[in-house]
């Protein structure tokens, strides 16, 4: 119990004193997870929507695979990305290992199935509603997907935020591919793991509270933005 209190105090101390390292790793956490989110959404939103509107032979199999990939252990993703990006691996020449780019790649792989699956679920309902009209208006697949994504954006936002939450709280994969290098690839979660390892629970917990606060802040910010954009619910 004492330790939790010490953690809260530590979190406030870090924030109030504008701790330079804290800002650096917090900013990097945001930068990595936001980039991963944007890239994952570029793939996952159209793909999930396409799955909802398209009937094809391996559709059920694809959806089942997607749902299984949602539970992919991050450490395994990290290991595979490490082996691919390692100097001795197929993409070693790119020199991407132990850079924020490598961390973004790993997170994209981790959250894309999650966002695609949530997108698929949300879009199925909307497609049932829009189906007749969009077919009647002779829309192309592209137009259908764009219409559904635009009109379903509230539900998709929830999916995207779930993806962001998973990305920013993830430690196993980015530890392996990022290496937790101070001033280069250290982010909130890897710093927490490091401080826990040193037995400095107060600092670790303080960072943990900063992480939670950050996740809440991003959620509130995005929800507020989407609320002011248009009043009322559909």
């Amino acid at each position: 119990m004492n330790e939790i209190w010490a953690g809260i105090v530590e979190a406030f101390r870090l924030i109030i004193t504008l701790d330079r390292d804290l800002f650096e790793i917090t900013l990097r956490s945001l930068q990595v997870s936001m980039s991963a989110l944007v890239i994952a959404c570029i793939f996952a939103l159209p793909f999930g929507t396409w799955l909802a509107i398209r009937r094809f032979r391996f559709r059920r199999l694809t959806i089942a695979t997607l749902n299984a990939l949602m539970g992919l252990p991050p450490v395994v993703v990290g290991l595979i990305v490490y082996l691919l990006l390692s100097r001795s691996g197929p993409f070693g020449v790119l020199g991407l290992l132990f850079t924020p780019t490598a961390m973004i790649i790993a997170q994209v792989i981790i959250i894309t199935p999650l966002i695609a699956s949530l997108t698929h679920q949300a879009m199925r309902e909307l497609w049932a509603e829009y189906h007749d009209l969009l077919i009647s208006l002779n829309t192309t697949s592209r137009q259908r997907i764009l219409t559904l994504i635009w009109d379903g954006r509230r539900a998709l936002l929830t999916g995207a935020l779930a993806g962001f939450g998973r990305a920013i709280g993830e430690v196993g994969a980015i530890m392996i591919v990022g290496g937790n290098i101070d001033h280069a690839t250290r982010v909130l979660t890897t710093a927490i793991a490091l401080e826990t390892g040193k037995g400095d629970f107060a600092l670790a917990l303080g960072l943990g509270f900063v992480l939670i606060a950050l996740a809440l802040l991003v959620n509130f910010a995005i929800h507020t933005l989407s609320r002011t954009e248009q009043e009322g619910t559909w």
């Binding site: 390692s86 100097r87 001795s88 691996g89 070693g92 290992l97 132990f98 290496g179 937790n180 290098i181 101070d182 001033h183 280069a184 490091l194």
Partner: peptide, 21 residues
């Protein structure tokens, strides 16, 4: 010289060295 530390176990350190990472 900016030395970037990868803090790992000896086993993993040796692997990283072998791979040239």
């Amino acid at each position: 010289l900016e030395v970037q530390l990868l803090i790992v176990g000896t086993g993993q350190a040796l692997r990283l060295g072998e791979a040239g990472d």
